[in-house]
Design a protein around this nucleic acid. Structure first.
Lengths: 213, 213
DNA sequence: CATAGTCTTGACCATATGGTCAGAAAAAGA
DNA sequence: TCTTTTTCTGACCATATGGTCAAGACTATG
């Protein structure tokens, strides 16, 4: 009867099929973007018929919407865990590591997000200006306090976060380019990236004698 | 009569209209991606009729192809200028600055490129594996020589380049997010980013005493 | 100004795509 | 088993979109 507009989850079959569809949709949307994807593609990927897809979801946009909702949650989580610490440099580097691991383990989510932002974030602009901005501002105040205490080198917290996001997500969003440029030696790209990024941010964050800068 | 398959350029009108169309197409493609864009959109943006667009180009894909060709040239140029220098740190930082300026001045080109890579680079994969890889490898050897001479700190040249690309292009590709997070204070985002990135890469590149690492 | 060549467009076509629907098939209850 | 509910599908519809074409409008030039 009356049920959630876009997410069924009562029956066993409903749970299984919705999951199946969302996984297929993530695969397709993250590869071709929203407008570049078709319900038929999603159906084929999920091994279901098109009308069957539309039996579980109210339309192409509804599927996309559910994916974006879940994505935002997943995406914000690591930053939420950036907390108080005796050693802020390690704390931030741990965040970098975590973000890189997400690029390695959830590249589809990263590309879905990138696609959405690239096209002007038509569906998640409010979330960016609301929850994301709030959380980011909060963490920037924390970082600023570390700077004031002299625990990390002085820098612009917001841009530090942008640098972390961009460098780590690059390995998911631009993986094709990364692999093309690295060629044969690209097999261990995430391991070498980990070493590189840790060194990059550690060297920037570690406070040093005044005369160095 | 016989003329270039996709680029007319003989008559004055031809030059003007092709330019007009390419500019409109860049606007549209960079915003909605290839499959998300329609010839009608491009026509509207260019102030021309759809058949008129198709009079100058052999189809949607041909327009996209021309844009990608030009893009690759424009995109590789800054890296080509990374050359010998007494002060490698300044040289690399100048490259960072140049890349950031390109994000500021040519955001559409950056997004067109990002869209193409995100979707698996179907049209430029060969260029990535060929010219781009060659150029990158060459510059990495140069960077490695600087490392060997002790002029810059030891690091992975390829990943250094990835970090430069990602951090600078982020300000074009993810501008919506950057502005959402920065809010009111985002007006001077490119200026503050410049300061931040210069500091970031300078601190990583500057060699220091062994005991520091 | 007449003519050849260039440019432009309204009308049209074929296909792709999002979405609907009536009814069949399968599960779940009784 | 019989009934009810849920799940599934072939056939279908309306629209959007890439692309064509014949004919008209314009431009340069002899």
């Amino acid at each position: 009867m009356a049920r959630a507009a876009s997410t069924k989850g009562n029956t066993r079959i409903q749970r299984q099929k919705t999951k199946q569809i969302l996984d297929a949709a993530l695969e397709v949307f993250s590869t071709y973007g929203f407008r570049g994807s078709t319900i038929d593609q999603i159906a084929a990927q999920a091994g279901l018929s098109k009308p069957n897809i539309l039996y579980y979801f109210d339309g192409k946009e509804a599927i996309h919407g559910v994916l974006l909702d879940r994505l935002l949650h997943t995406w914000l989580e690591p930053l939420e865990h950036l907390g108080e610490s005796d050693n802020p440099v390690d704390e931030i580097c741990a965040y970098v590591t975590r973000k890189l691991e997400m690029s390695r383990d959830y590249p589809r989510e990263s590309r879905l997000f990138a696609n959405e932002i690239l096209q002007g974030a038509p569906n998640i602009l409010a979330d960016l200006q609301g929850p994301l901005k709030s959380l980011t501002d909060e963490k920037c105040r924390l970082i600023q306090s570390w700077i004031d205490e002299g625990k990390i080198a002085p820098l612009d917290p917001h841009h530090l976060i942008f640098s972390i996001w961009s460098t780590t997500q690059h390995y998911a969003d631009f993986d094709v380019q990364v692999q093309a440029v690295l060629g044969e030696s690209g097999a261990d790209r995430f391991a070498t990236a980990q070493t590189h990024l840790d060194r990059l941010f550690r060297s920037m964050l570690t406070p040093r004698a005044d005369h160095d800068i």
